[in-house]
Design a protein around this nucleic acid. Sequence first.
DNA 1: GTTTAGCACTCGAAAACACAGAGTGCTAAA
DNA 2: TTTAGCACTCTGTGTTTTCGAGTGCTAAAC
Lengths: 339, 339
Amino acid sequence: MTERKQKILAAVVESYIRTGEPVGSKNLMGELDFSVSSATIRNEMADLAEMGYLEQPHTSAGRVPTTLGYRYYIDKLMNKMELNEADCKSITKTVSSGSGDPEQLLEKAGEVIANLTNCAAITTMPAGDKATVRRAEIVPVSNRTAMIVLLTSAGTLKSKACRSDMPITPQTVERFYNVCASHFVGRPLEEIGTVMLQTLVASLGEYALEMSPFFVALADLANDALSSDVLLEGQSNLFNHRELGGNVLELMEFLRKGDPLAKLIAGGTDDVDIKIGTENEYKQLANSSVIISHYDINGERSGALGIIGPTRLNYAKLIPYMQFVSGLVGKILTETLDE
Amino acid sequence: MTERKQKILAAVVESYIRTGEPVGSKNLMGELDFSVSSATIRNEMADLAEMGYLEQPHTSAGRVPTTLGYRYYIDKLMNKMELNEADCKSITKTVSSGSGDPEQLLEKAGEVIANLTNCAAITTMPAGDKATVRRAEIVPVSNRTAMIVLLTSAGTLKSKACRSDMPITPQTVERFYNVCASHFVGRPLEEIGTVMLQTLVASLGEYALEMSPFFVALADLANDALSSDVLLEGQSNLFNHRELGGNVLELMEFLRKGDPLAKLIAGGTDDVDIKIGTENEYKQLANSSVIISHYDINGERSGALGIIGPTRLNYAKLIPYMQFVSGLVGKILTETLDE
DNA sequence: GTTTAGCACTCGAAAACACAGAGTGCTAAA
DNA sequence: TTTAGCACTCTGTGTTTTCGAGTGCTAAAC
C-alpha cells in the first residue's frame, strides 16, 4: 500500500461521501494534491479494486468504496474534523434546556443528533444493571385496581395498573409495602425474579392469593426497569438517503423492534464504535453504517447514543460530534444523579 | 338521483375499494343486478361525474369516486357488513389478555386494529379532563434530584425527574407532601396552572425558593396528564397502499406529531366519525380517510380509537369493526376503573 | 520501469418510438 | 330511452437508439 494509493483511496472515499456518485478517474484528478494523468489513477484504482478496497457498481461506472475501503479510511486515513464552535453552543443549549429528567434529556439529545446528521438517532437510558429497589408500593385507583409503582436507585420510575380479584383494602396496601420494604428495598432489581416471588408468595400464607397479582406485576416492572429503554428519533430522515433504496422499509421495520436495537447499541467496549455495512451483525443493516458513542455516569459506562444511516456517512465530521454529545450527556447526567 | 344511478355509484365505489383500479363501464356490467349495455352505464357514469360523485384520473381511464361520492355511498348506500364471529373472539381474546393496565390495553387494541385493517391505528388514553389529583409527592433520588410523582383519579401516573438548587432534605419532602395534600388532592388537574402556583409559592415564604422547581415540574406533569396521550400503531402499514404514493412520507411526518393527532381524534360528537380525503382539516390527510370510534367509560365519552388509511377503505367492513373494538375497550376500562 | 496519450469497447440512463388495450364520447339506428 | 358501432384519446409497456462517462489495454514517451 503505497502512499499514493492511500491518497487516492482517501480521495475516492471523500468524494463518494460528498456526492454519492461513483467516482471516476478523471474527476478524481482535480481532487488530488499531486498531478498525475487519469490513466495513472486508473491503474492505481484498478489495484485498489483488486485489493478489495473499491468496487464498481457495473463495468463502466466509477468506483465506490467497499466496507473494507471505508474501514481502512476510518482507521488510517481520516482526519477528524474540528467541532464547529457555534454548533457546540447550540447543541449544549438545546440538550441542557430540560428540567433534569433523564428521559427528556436523551430524547432531546436524540433529536439534536438526528437533525444534525440527517440520520436516525438511537439513545439508551442509563443502564439499570446494578440498580437496586428504592421503593415499591401499590396505590389503589379503584375498588379492585391499583397502580404498582417501582422506583429504582438509578432514578427510573416504572408504574403499571394491575387488577386484583379481591377488593383492595388499606391493609393490602400496607402489607404490600411492608413486604417490599423488608424483602426488596436495597436489593438489586435482578433478584425480583419469578423464583424469588414463588417462595415469597408461598410464605405469605392466607394473603398469598390477595397479593400475588401485585407481585407478578412488580416482577414485570423490575424487568422493564432492567431492560434499558431505547429511544429512537428521526427515523424518517432515512428516506432522504436514496442509496438505502427499497431497503428503507425493512430497515425501519427493524428499528421498530426494541430488542435488537438494544443489543446493537450495547456491544462494543471502545469509546466510539463504528460498524460499516456488512460489518453489522444484522443483515437488515448491510447497507447502513452505525456510529455508537457511549456515555459515562460517574466514570461508569452507562448508556450510549448512536446514529444509523447509509454507509456513506461523513465519518470525519460525525464521529467528533457524537463524542461531543455523548460527553455532554454523560456530564449532565452525572450532575443530575450525583449522590 | 335515480335508483339506477345509486346502484351504479355503489358498484363503482365497491369495485374501486376492492381493486384500487379506476373502474370502466364494461367491467361494471358484470357487477350490477340488472342488465344494461356498457353504453348506458357510460351515460349514467358521465352524469354521476357531472354531479361530482365520480372523476377520471385522465380522459381515457375509468372512473374513481370523489370525496363526495364516498360520502354519498357511506351515508345512503352502504350496507354495513356483519362482524365475523371468529374475528370477534380473537380480538376479544387479544385485547383482554393484559393485566389491566390501560396503556397496555390501548396499545394492544391499536395493534389489533392496525393488523386487521392494514392501516395506521391511533388510540387515545382515557381523557383526564375531569380527573382530580389523587396524590402528589417527591421522592429523592440523589442529593439534589428528585422524582415528582403525580397520580390522578383517572388512574394515570406521571413522573419526572427534577433538579433543585438546594439539597433535598426529608423536611422538603414532607413539606411538599403536606402542601399538595392540603391544596391539590381532590382538586381538578386544571387548577394546577401557573397562576395558582404563583400565589402558592408566594405564600410559602422562606421555603419558596426551595420548593418552586418542584411545583413548576408538578404543573408540567398536570399538563401532561391533561393532554390525552395518543398512541400510534402500525404506521408502516401505510407503505402498503401505493395510492398514497409519495405523500406517505409527509403523512408519516404528520403522524409523528402528537398534537394534531390529538385534535384529530378529539373532535366529533357522533359515535363514529368518518372523514374522507379533503374533508379532513389537515392538508396532509387530503388523500387519506380517517375513521374514529369513541369509547365510553361508565357511560361517559372518554377516548377514541381510530384508523388512518387511504380513501378507499373498506368502510362497510371497518366501521362495524371499529365500533366493536371501541365498545370492547370501553367495557374493559369501565370494569377496570369501577369505583 | 513508470507514466501518459490514444483508442476501442462496455454498459447504463435517457430519449424516441411504436403499439396494444382500455376506456371514452358521440352518432345513428332500434 | 337504450344500444351498437366507431373514431379518438390516453397511458403503460416494450423496443430501439443514442449518448456519455468510464474502463482496460497498448504502445509510445519520459
